Computed example of a mutant assay.
Amino acid sequence: MPAVPQRLSWAVETLAVAPGDRLLEIGCGPGVAVSLVCDLLTTGTITAVDRSATAVERAGARNARHLESGRARILRASLEELRLDGERFDKVFAVNVNLFWTRDPARELAHISSLLAYGGELSLFYEPPSAERASALAADLTRTLSSHGLTPTVVRGGERLVCVRAS
């Protein structure tokens, strides 16, 4: 398998996954973060979603043993279409998912709030092309999340890696 991108290993490390956490990944791509998270879980689970059939197929192939064990579930859906019958998550995260800063994500944030367990946390990870863009992106996301009643904090992972967390 190819090397794990630094942004994904940093994201999973920053999430501080506990063995019993229930996680939701928005935009899982080929499932690299799913695999990293599953390696940290014992009784916990991760549900990963992506709109792309190709991404879901690749994520499923990469995580076959985790799917079989019940630690992972991979679904083809957009965030807007995602219906999980009252299921709640301790941690919801996304890596390089642009919808949170390219337009007003009011509907998506309301939906995520309905999916978070009490005390749960949303973490949005990005790796823009420059340190200046990382700072600007963090400021934009902080303003957006605050305007929707969330309490954001910024975590930096070097010059270009940034996470905006909200609870």
Rank of each mutant, 00 (worst) to 15 (best):
P19L: 07
G20H: 07
G20F: 07
G20E: 09
R22T: 02
L23A: 04
L23K: 00
E25T: 11
E25I: 04
E25L: 00
E25A: 03
G27V: 10
G29D: 14
G29N: 05
P30D: 13
G31Y: 09
G31H: 03
V32N: 10
V32M: 13
V34E: 03
V34A: 09
V34C: 14
V34I: 15
S35R: 14
C38G: 04
C38T: 01
T42K: 06
T43M: 05
T43E: 14
G44Y: 11
G44C: 11
T45L: 05
I46F: 12
I46E: 00
I46R: 08
T47Y: 02
T47H: 01
T47P: 05
T47C: 04
A48P: 00
A48S: 12
V49G: 09
R51L: 12
S52G: 05
A53S: 15
T54N: 14
A55Y: 12
V56I: 13
V56W: 02
V56T: 09
E57H: 14
R58N: 14
A59N: 13
A59Y: 03
A59R: 05
A59C: 14
A59F: 03
G60Y: 00
G60A: 02
A61H: 10
A61C: 08
A61P: 04
R62T: 09
R62W: 09
R62Q: 06
R62C: 07
N63G: 11
N63S: 12
N63R: 10
N63H: 00
A64C: 08
R65I: 01
R65P: 02
H66E: 00
H66A: 02
E68A: 15
E68G: 09
E68F: 06
E68R: 13
S69Q: 12
S69A: 15
R71F: 01
L75T: 08
L75V: 12
L75N: 05
R76Q: 11
R76I: 03
E80T: 14
L82V: 09
L82K: 13
R83L: 01
R83C: 09
L84A: 08
L84V: 09
L84N: 03
L84I: 01
D85E: 15
G86N: 04
G86P: 02
G86W: 03
E87F: 00
E87I: 01
D90Q: 06
V92L: 07
V92E: 00
A94W: 15
V95T: 11
N96R: 12
N98S: 14
N98E: 12
L99S: 08
L99P: 10
W101M: 10
W101F: 15
T102S: 14
T102V: 15
R103G: 13
P105D: 04
A106S: 13
A106L: 13
E108F: 11
E108P: 07
L109T: 08
L109K: 05
L109A: 04
A110S: 03
A110H: 03
H111P: 11
I112F: 00
